[in-house]
Design a protein around this nucleic acid. Structure first.
Lengths: 342, 342
DNA sequence: CTGAAAGCGCTTACAG
DNA sequence: CTGAAAGCGCTTACAG
């Protein structure tokens, strides 16, 4: 049925070893022999069996990605970057949706290990028990955690956006626009990435060299959470001139609350987000935000994995911090000097 | 290093064949032996090498999906449905982004065949030459085409939304709302899916049993195309009371043109789309549209593939038509009887 | 119920 | 430069 090395060998009157060598490295094969083998292989439409090859070489030429849900555009973008990098290197990428279930995550990883994938991208190991994490980090296959602070667990590599620099950038931008009363909406302290954004933001304000009144409010870090926070705050306090939402979803909630309170964005209140999700460019007004290099993060993660796959048993975890950048759209505007002086 | 069947066999004092049988089907193995093997396997944390297993059984337990771009939410939804179905059956899913490049598509398929995937989901073979398509359909591995009219090429299975029924549903809905002047914005005739929607829509109008003035306009089937068409039409003709856009993207363009012309949706003009993309529920007003069962299509495609994988060499292409449904949101409203009588 | 053998389709020292 | 052999880690008739 399927044509194998033996078929080619028979056809050429040589040994399968010679065929194998001709088809691969080809060192130490007479040019003429090699050419003949190649011709016959092509004529017979030979397709090497990668399972057999993988069995002897121990390399499957496949990577895998275990994420919560590919329908989340953030992960789709990561996946695309990862897959492009894998394709370029001649690897395939297996996609797994875990919904963050610890059980599914472990099951996937076990299946993947059985298939001898050479590396795994994961978006989280937060739900796993200590011993489960240990098992993963000691499995022998390189694993990179996406968008997680390093040292959450030993043994994993990480690829992370520079949240601190992003928060700082957002703060500097608002100050540059002469805002002096700024609210910062964010999530719980334990959320590492958000905490970094807050730290960076505060550093910017402190370094402003001028008085800035800022208020940090914590709540659910989603659209609804921010909507509720903002709604309540606008009733209790005098409105700020700007708000920095710790992510775009929160920015959307804040904007809704602002409109409902009869104010306008950006005329009355400027809003800046973080992430640069697709919707950010679509809503009215288009949201100014800090862009996370999602595609590049996926790509970088695969680079790390591939590098480690080259040194079985003797690589050590790597940590990559990815640059973020400000995307100016229409949700922020400067305070006029006049207004400012009043 | 890694523990194999031999290690377990040695430890248990039996042959590897017995270990293999115990771990698998287990028919004809003494219960006591089997239990012992299982215990030792667990203790040694044994992981079967799927490459070896695949080599001998000829089954890789993996499927693949070759789509344009996972960042397109339509494909992300399909992918999720497919992956869930695969996971349930103990299969993994390889993700490939082709950007519709014929070269990438063929390269992917070749790699996938080498890895002995047991089935492939593709979103198109339109860009391939006749001989390339032949090569695919005769490769021996089952392939299902997503969202393509059957008989585009012989030898492929298909999973397709019922575009005709959807168009008909949209037409009936508008008629039910007492609309009698309706514009239909669609793409070029050659576009099979859109053509079906148009056919269904016309059937509804013809069956209305009352006079309906309808106009079908063809152009680029995207937001910008529909925007331009609608803008121009509104200047040249008396406005309709409703428009049926052949897809949601077009509906968005039409709505923009309507607003810019100083009319309101749905007060002055009702708009219905097709697809039910995520944005449809987010824009103002939320778009009434025909829902395509994307998740279910991905799931069904895997079902087809798995069924075929069970009968190597003796399956024949299968075609599944998936039901669509109307999602009523806020972009359509009835013509009041009074207005109607005027 | 279990063992010994052959084989899946490759690669890679080892000779020559 | 090339062949013969061994082996990767499994499964599966075939005996017994």
């Amino acid at each position: 049925m399927r044509v194998t090395l033996r078929d080619i060998a028979r056809e050429c009157g040589v040994d399968v070893a010679t065929v194998s060598r001709s088809l691969n490295g080809a060192y130490g094969v007479r040019e003429k022999t090699r050419r003949k083998v190649l011709t016959v292989a092509k004529r017979l439409n030979y397709r090497p069996n990668r399972l057999a090859k993988g069995l002897v070489t121990g390399r499957s030429r496949t990577l895998a990605m275990v994420i919560s849900d590919i329908r989340n555009p953030f992960f789709a973008e990561l996946a695309r970057g990862a897959e492009d990098a894998a394709y370029r290197a001649g690897y395939e990428l297996i996609l797994c949706n875990s919904d963050l279930s610890a059980e599914k995550q472990m099951q996937y990883v076990h299946s993947l290990l059985e298939k001898r994938v050479e590396g795994i991208l994961m978006n989280s190991v937060a739900g796993l028990s200590h011993s489960e994490r240990q098992e993963l980090s000691q499995s022998g296959v390189p694993i990179v955690l996406l968008n997680r602070p390093p040292a959450q667990v030993q043994g994993f590599s990480t690829v992370l956006a520079d949240n601190f620099a992003g928060g700082e950038r957002a703060g500097n931008y608002l100050i540059h626009l002469r805002h002096r009363v700024i609210w910062h909406l964010t999530g719980p302290r334990q959320h590492g990435n958000l905490a970094e954004r807050t730290r960076g933001f505060r550093k910017a304000l402190e370094g402003a060299g001028t008085e800035v009144a800022s208020l940090t409010i914590r709540g659910h870090h989603n659209t609804e959470g921010a909507y509720q926070m903002m709604k309540k705050l606008l009733r209790q306090h005098r409105a700020p001139t700007a708000v920095f939402a710790a992510n775009d979803a929160m920015a959307f909630g804040a904007i809704r609350a602002i409109f409902e309170a009869g104010r306008r964005v950006p005329e009355d209140i400027s809003v800046i987000g973080f992430d640069d999700v697709e919707l950010a460019g679509i809503i009215r007004p288009p949201l100014t935000t800090i862009h996370q290099p999602k595609y590049e993060m996926g790509w970088a993660a695969v680079e790390v994995l591939l590098q480690q796959a080259e040194r079985p048993g003797q690589w050590s975890p790597q940590h990559r911090l990815m640059e973020v950048r400000l995307v100016e759209r229409e949700s922020c505007r400067p305070i006029s000097r006049r207004a400012h002086d009043q």
